[in-house]
């Protein structure tokens, strides 16, 4: 147990700072780096994308009910010129993932995505939803079919439902990237590449060659592309 210092023992000049700590659990420094408006915001999609089901605490999650209003705030704020989406995700809830992807796609604020580490499963539609997509040299993307999970009643309708979900993902990726539908389907159901499963792992430039991602690059390239998109948009507005 720590000894709590008595309030009256503290020097008076420290009092305002301590009040901030009591209220918010952090000190806010006025005029610090946060006070300056940054033209680009950065959204990180990490771990599991959490949707309708609250995942156990061991998972690192991206909570879609929090991300969606953030995107609305970014879209509405004229001072935010562009959005960089950094992906390092193992996948997650299909509907939450597609919801984020659709939001990114329909934003008028320029969006650039960067796949770092991994952009697997439902991460693929989110990556391609951006106006321009990048992948780092060592990052991987796993393209695989949707499997049965949760309580499933084994009737033929179940498989039709699964098929429909699969189609939604395929359609979104094909519509928003250069990958031909046949290539994507072939990769999704390829056998022999994954040990316990069907599917394909694409590393860096392979994702670009397949037409899934636009370019191999890092954060510098991503921010340059974002600046170009902003310049194009502002040029078009005058």
């Amino acid at each position: 147990m720590f000894e709590q210092p008595e309030a009256e023992q503290l020097p008076e000049r420290e009092a305002p700072g301590l009040q901030t700590i009591k209220e918010l659990g952090q000190t806010v420094t006025p005029g610090g780096p946060l006070a300056e408006e940054m033209p680009f915001h950065c959204l990180t999609i990490i771990g599991q994308i959490e949707g309708h089901l609250v995942l156990p605490p061991r998972n690192k999650t991206t909570k879609y009910e929090h991300v969606i209003p953030q995107l609305v705030a970014i879209e509405q704020n004229p001072k935010i010129k562009g959005l960089l989406v950094v992906l390092n995700t193992v996948g997650g809830d299909i509907e939450a993932g597609l919801a984020i992807a659709e939001m990114l796609k329909t934003m008028t604020t320029p969006v650039v995505s960067l796949v770092l580490g991994g952009g697997h499963s439902i991460g693929a539609p989110i990556a391609v939803a951006a106006d321009h997509s990048l992948i780092s040299e060592t990052a991987t993307m796993t393209i695989h079919p949707i499997r049965l999970s949760g309580l499933v009643i084994g009737v033929p309708q179940t498989y039709e439902y699964l098929d429909k979900m699969q189609e939604r993902v395929i359609r979104f990726i094909v519509q928003h990237s250069r990958i031909p539908e046949e290539t994507l389907r072939e990769m999704m159901f390829r056998t022999g590449e994954l040990v316990r499963d069907v599917g394909t792992v694409l590393v860096g430039s392979e994702a670009v060659r397949a037409g899934l991602i636009d370019e191999v690059g890092g954060v510098g390239t991503a921010l340059n592309r974002l600046s170009q998109l902003v310049a194009q948009r502002e040029g078009g507005m005058h």
Binding site: Q48, G92, H120, S149
Partner: peptide, 15 residues
């Protein structure tokens, strides 16, 4: 419905 590369038993451990 989850679409993930992680095994389901790992994701749902402790649910």
């Amino acid at each position: 419905m989850l679409y993930t590369v992680l095994p389901l038993e790992e994701v749902l451990e402790g649910i």
